[in-house]
Write a protein that binds this DNA or RNA. Structure first.
Length: 132
DNA sequence: AACATGACGTATT
DNA sequence: TAATACGCCATGT
């Protein structure tokens, strides 16, 4: 291949959309995996999930992945909270109440203002600590 | 192509 | 602790 062809190739690559549909799906799958890894009774922030998925500073993408997640996947979406430890939904909304109920069902404590504490007692692993 | 939106995060006051 | 402002990133208009 001559230099011109090489240049064209590089340019074409640079102009090509970096994220086509399959790439987006790949990102979502990494995010979904990270969420699935949250142990019962534990919680994690959007930012943490993003980092764990290898996508630092993409907390908002995590939110999108959650919306797009099929119900059949049965992800522990309720264990994902905002960085301040509160439920991301509008307080009082149907989704908010659903999430609160799921968390309490796992032993987590949900304060009136929406602040969540992971279930006490759980495992002693250092890994688990990262999630609490 | 500019602008608005969102299940977000961090720094500042 | 709370309110505000600004940054960030993908999407939809």
């Amino acid at each position: 291949m001559d230099g011109e062809a090489l240049k064209r190739g590089v340019r074409a690559k640079a102009q090509a959309p970096v994220s086509d549909a399959s790439d987006a799906t790949a990102k979502f799958e990494r995010i979904w995996s990270a969420i699935a890894a949250i142990p019962p009774g534990g919680v994690a922030s959007y930012g943490e999930i993003a980092r764990r998925a290898g996508l630092p500073r993409r907390a908002r993408l995590v939110a999108q992945a959650l919306r797009a997640a099929p119900e059949a996947m049965c992800l522990p979406w309720h264990r994902v909270l905002r960085a301040d430890g509160r439920i991301a939904f509008t307080p009082g909304s149907a989704s908010f109440r659903r999430q609160k109920r799921l968390l309490e069902g796992e032993g987590a404590t949900v304060a009136k203002n929406g602040r969540v504490s992971a279930a006490a007692g759980g495992s002693d692993d250092l890994d688990a600590l990262l999630w609490r």
